[in-house]
Amino acid sequence: MSFIDEQDRRYAPLWSRIREHPFLLETRDGTLDPETFATWMRQDYLFVEAAIPFIGALLPKAPVEHWAPLSGVIGALEKELHLFEERAARVGVELRGAPPAFACHAYVQFLLSTAAHASYPVAWTVLYAAERAYHDSWVVVRDGIDPDSPWTPFVENWAGGEFASYVGWLGGELETLAREASPGERERMSEAYRLTLLYELAFWEMAHGAEGWPGTDDDLARTAGGPRWNPDPEAATEGAWSNLADHARKATGEVDHD
């Protein structure tokens, strides 16, 4: 059995909880409170911002053949930020200035601490599980959403073929890393997989229930979320993952030749 199949069997109840989350089902059915969706947008925007230094911190550990694709991931994440900005402007949501919710802050610290302290295979496991969870979640939304929904561009981004191809490439590389890993390292990878799924679930829970921090002063919860962008409004907001999809095809081809 492949490493990923093994994990998916082990954590099947977590996957079910993610895929059946009311946030996703209500987004799909068009019944979600727009302010709830706005909460998710603000928090996920902060998360995507922090994902960029996470990827950057992986580079010193990465094999040289991962440098180009990981650089591509950073570019794709920047385009995702533009997608958020464009959608937010369209529906009149103020994206910036929200303090990170606890689940968002905790997940970001997990990513950054993993990048700094964990091995490359463990960190890669986190990257795969996070992206895979996004793909699977938005596939749930795709199957039934009104094509005219303002959230359809998010569906197209994460449930689309380019992102699927990128996740497939991440999975293939994860299998290679797992094959080369010792039993102890595989167990640490499995634990990272579990924690990532827990954080993914906690993120939907937070967005749906708007959980907060102790204390009430939002200003106190405000933290440095990572570098701020000066987005170019002219930049394309669609096809964020197209360059990665190209790379994935090439990389898969190269792997086949080995």
Partner: peptide
């Protein structure tokens, strides 16, 4: 637990970065 996890991740990543 989640709070311990989040707090320690915050500490070690701040120390590292």
């Amino acid at each position: 637990w989640p709070t311990t996890r989040a707090y320690t991740d915050f500490l070690v990543r701040t120390a590292a970065d």
